[in-house]
């Protein structure tokens, strides 16, 4: 199963082409990708930059779990989950999900499952920086 999974948590800039190339395969009829981008506002306030910090070793394990479950649950061939750590500016890419499959439905579903689950379970925290301060997102549910 490992050769069908690409997981990365990195302080370096994420590479969309790398995710695409990993999942691309002659047997696939389609590739679905989700690219998260840093938005310039939250609740009407201007966001200056973001910082992502992670419990790195556990986050990688959780990312692998999501990929393994997606491979079991959906009829897909390959999946890539890449996430960035550290300071990001507006427009930068914190996350990329890419999924390939014979038929598009499974890839769409697996991609949505992967990003939704990532946001619920992977120990990564986002801090938003505003003109007048900074706040951990969702820190006080």
């Amino acid at each position: 199963m490992e050769d069908r999974i690409s997981v990365l948590l990195t302080p370096k800039k994420l590479n969309q082409q790398k995710c695409y190339d990993f999942v691309q395969d002659a047997s696939c009829g389609g590739i679905v990708t989700f690219t998260g981008t840093v938005r310039n506002h939250t609740s009407g306030k201007e966001v200056k930059q973001l910082e992502f910090s992670a419990y790195t070793s556990m986050a990688v394990k959780e990312l692998i779990k999501i990929a393994e479950r997606a491979l079991k649950r959906f009829d897909i061939l390959k999946i890539a989950l890449h996430h960035a750590e550290g300071l990001l500016q507006v427009g930068d890419i914190p996350v990329i999900i890419a999924v390939s499959s014979s038929h598009r439905k499974a890839a769409f579903e697996a991609c949505e499952y992967a990003i939704n689950t990532l946001k619920e379970t992977v120990p990564i925290w986002k801090k938003e920086f505003f003109e007048d301060g900074e706040v951990w997102v969702n820190a006080h549910p």
Partner: peptide, 28 residues
């Protein structure tokens, strides 16, 4: 999380365990 896996409230912590407090996550 204990030793890098999520645990429930009734999990018994053992000597030398690595226990992480995980506030609401916000990756993605």
């Amino acid at each position: 999380a204990v030793n890098e896996s999520y645990v429930k409230d009734d999990f018994k912590i053992q000597d030398k365990d690595v226990v992480a407090i995980i506030p609401p996550v916000s990756g993605g």
